[in-house]
Design a protein around this nucleic acid. Sequence first.
DNA 1: GTCTATATACGGATAGAC
DNA 2: GTCTATCCGTATATAGAC
Lengths: 188, 188
Amino acid sequence: MRYSATHKQETREKLLNKSRELAKKEGFGGTGVDAFMKAIDMTGGAFYTHFESKAELFAELVEQELEFSTEMLAGDEDAPADHVARKLRSYLSSAHALHPETGCVLPTLGPEIARASPEIKARVEKALKRLRDAWSERLDDDDAGWALLAQCVGALILARVVESERTRREILSASRRFLERVEKAPRE
Amino acid sequence: MRYSATHKQETREKLLNKSRELAKKEGFGGTGVDAFMKAIDMTGGAFYTHFESKAELFAELVEQELEFSTEMLAGDEDAPADHVARKLRSYLSSAHALHPETGCVLPTLGPEIARASPEIKARVEKALKRLRDAWSERLDDDDAGWALLAQCVGALILARVVESERTRREILSASRRFLERVEKAPRE
DNA sequence: GTCTATATACGGATAGAC
DNA sequence: GTCTATCCGTATATAGAC
């Protein structure tokens, strides 16, 4: 054959990586197959050597996004004591708000995932539950896992729908202070 | 003319109302002009008597959504003392999560608004700031306005991307309990 | 004001040459 | 495996009849 043994796999990986960026920036539905392929300097026809359909790319892409994100956010036993607090700070940053293409998938593709197939949503649920469990266990707080996640996702959405950088920073810093305060809150 | 004096205005209102529902359910970009018109039993061609373009409909639709939502959530001086707590409970309900078409626009069209024009985002910002101010003033808590809004939007997104009704309820109830707890939290 | 018909572009997907 | 060319459906938008 005219291509190396690993060529197809490499192309697929490049395609997935670029697609994840593009989809988070412009929306998955808003990006055509030709645009995904052009981003890796290829033409539309070659797409179907790697995926049966555009929908299959979406499934793969969401799977990878959640795998990477949850692994990064959850942390392991070697993580420092303030691991969650650190992740919250970097998640709730202007840099994150200004760069959806390299950020968390939920504030960008959340609504599209919500409309996706039960199979996709079941896999998303599994990944999110692992992250929630990790955070709740680490903080010894049953509610905090889901609540901190929600605070992160919601604050990013708000930060991105406003126009001024000033308001964007207000939203993010209010959210950060709010969460710090809860660490000292009483539990019944 | 063959139509009453108020006919055009009535049609436009019907179109806007139905479009707001449809866009929140299927996404604005994912819904065609023909689909919007068919929802009020008309054909696509008539759309352009009422709007110059599909983008103009988006601007109008987002404007109305935020006007209605923020007015409803903010409350006025006649509202009961537990006004915000009531709104939080109804926002963070399974009913809301299961019915995007009649719910808040941010968890459904948030990412599309984030990609919209500066003019649209500036108007969204103005409406959101009014709501934030109302809540922060009512709770006498500078951070709570933005933070509660973010928690609401994020929890709805999470509740909608998971598959099982059980997990959906867990997310929403964790979020509600978390917010109740903060009411008793210390402020520095 | 709304209809049907249509211009024009772009969407996802396939066929066949290389 | 990737290319070009193409099929076909659907998208936004316009033109002209009623």
